[in-house]
Simulated scan of single mutants.
Amino acid sequence: MRESRIIVVGSLNMDMVVQADRIPNPGETVLGGTFFMSTGGKGANQAVAAARLGGNAAMIGKIGRDIFGSRYLQAIQEEGIDIQGIEQDSEEPSGIALVIVERSGENAIVVAPGANAGLRPEDVEQQFHRYPEGKILLLQLEIPMETVVFAAQQAKKRGMLVLLNPAPANDAVTSLFPLIDIITPNLHEAEQMTGVKITDIASAKCAAQYLSAKGVRHVVITLGELGAVLLDDGEFHHVPVPRVTALDTTAAGDVFNGALAAAIIQEKSLVDATAFACKAAAIAVTRLGAQSSIPYLHEVMQYQET
Rank of each mutant, 00 (worst) to 15 (best):
M1R: 13
E3T: 12
I7C: 15
S11A: 13
M14S: 05
V17I: 15
A20G: 05
I23E: 01
G27Q: 05
L31C: 10
K42C: 06
A44G: 12
N45A: 08
R52H: 11
G54C: 07
M59C: 12
I60Y: 03
K62Y: 04
I63G: 04
R65Y: 09
G69W: 02
R71F: 12
Y72H: 07
D82N: 10
E87P: 04
E87S: 13
S90G: 14
I96H: 00
A97V: 07
A97L: 08
L98P: 05
L98G: 13
L98W: 11
N107E: 11
A108Y: 12
V110P: 08
A112M: 13
V124A: 09
Q126S: 15
Q127I: 12
E133F: 12
K135S: 11
L137M: 14
L138W: 03
K157W: 10
K157E: 13
A167Q: 05
A169R: 10
N170L: 14
S175R: 13
I180W: 01
T184V: 15
L187Q: 13
H188N: 13
E189I: 06
E191N: 05
Q192D: 12
M193Y: 04
I198D: 00
T199E: 14
D200F: 10
A202N: 12
A204N: 02
Q209F: 09
A213V: 06
R217H: 11
V219Y: 01
L226C: 13
V229N: 00
E235V: 12
H237N: 12
P240A: 07
V244E: 01
T250P: 04
I264F: 05
S269Y: 03
D272R: 06
A273D: 01
A280V: 04
I283M: 06
A284K: 00
I294F: 04
L297Y: 01
Q302P: 04
Y303G: 06
